[in-house]
């Protein structure tokens, strides 16, 4: 029996419907886990199954959130942290990529720098915190520096590796037209490495948050990191948990933004 077009269309509709169903199923359970988590937390806290002083409860956190939003103090803390993180993230990625470009441009430099990069990469960058604060002053600058420094070296190493792995034939094509080194870099090496650069962006989002929060711990003036350390010192864990949840939400938004950029930039590969 020969299938008619309408049969095929029907089958296609069924297929699409099954895809839709699968998607709804996944979404439903994602939402369910979210709700159950907060519900159980709330109930456990109210019933004293867990110590409400330590673990607070969603309703208390919500109350604190509305209160802090109302008096305006929260927004300024969030703003400061977000600003520092974004700047640290952009600086770290940009400088890391620039360094990688320098290593590519001067092969000798990369040979010489190799062991130093290994050492710098292995060293825990947050340990530099105290020195940065002394050198740059206890404020924005040193916190942003923390956010940046934590991702520079790893970005350099990953992006430089990707520069080296670009298929030499793309460069050959450009060279047969008489392209100089700069044209080869801009025309082939850099765009071919965009997917790698984007994936380091994703890693750097997380790293910059680490750098900035640790920086705020140390400087202890303002920001979400300050709120955590302050809440810890006065034993207000509702405040600590509120900051944590905010950080999680903001980091997620940043990650999604990078994902969006990725889609835009490399849609045609």
């Amino acid at each position: 029996m020969k299938r008619t077009d309408s049969d095929i269309q029907l089958l296609h509709e069924q297929y699409l419907a099954s895809l839709q169903k699968e998607k709804r199923f996944v979404r439903f359970f994602q939402l369910l886990i979210f709700l159950i988590f907060f519900l159980v937390w709330e109930v456990a806290s109210k019933q004293q199954w867990i110590d409400p002083l330590l673990f607070s409860s969603p309703s208390n956190i919500w109350e604190l959130l509305t209160e802090k939003l109302a008096d305006g103090s929260l927004l300024s803390h969030v703003g400061v942290t977000l600003f520092e993180t974004l700047l640290g993230f952009v600086l770290g990625t940009l400088l890391g990529t620039l360094l990688a470009a320098a290593l590519w441009w001067f092969p000798r430099l990369s040979k010489v720098a190799d062991p130093y990069l290994v050492v710098l990469n292995a060293m825990p960058k947050v340990a530099l915190g105290p020195i940065l604060i002394v050198a740059l002053g206890p404020g924005f600058t040193s916190i942003i520096a923390m956010g940046a420094i934590i991702s520079i070296i790893i970005t350099t190493i990953v992006v430089y590796t990707s520069f080296k792995e670009v298929d030499a034939n793309y460069v050959k094509v450009l060279k047969t037209f008489g392209a100089n080194r700069w044209q080869c870099f801009i025309g082939a090496i850099l765009p071919a490495s965009f997917p790698t650069i984007i994936s380091t962006l994703k890693v750097n989002v997380g790293l910059s948050w680490v750098g900035v929060i640790v920086g705020e711990f140390l400087v202890s003036k303002q920001g979400l990191g300050y709120m955590i350390i302050y809440g810890f010192q006065v034993f207000n864990f509702t405040l600590v948990l509120l900051s944590l949840l905010l950080i999680a939400a903001l980091a997620t938004v940043m990650y999604q933004a990078v994902g969006y950029i990725e889609k835009k930039l490399i849609k045609n590969r």
Binding site: K172, V173, F177, G178, A179, P191
Partner: peptide
């Protein structure tokens, strides 16, 4: 020295995947 009066065609096309066909043929 490299010279545009010599055209070179490789085993594979090596068209740049992030460029349109038009942009690719204008490359040289």
């Amino acid at each position: 020295s490299m010279n545009p009066s010599v055209g070179y065609m490789l085993q594979q096309d090596y068209l740049f995947p992030w460029k349109t066909i038009e942009e690719n043929i204008f490359l040289g």
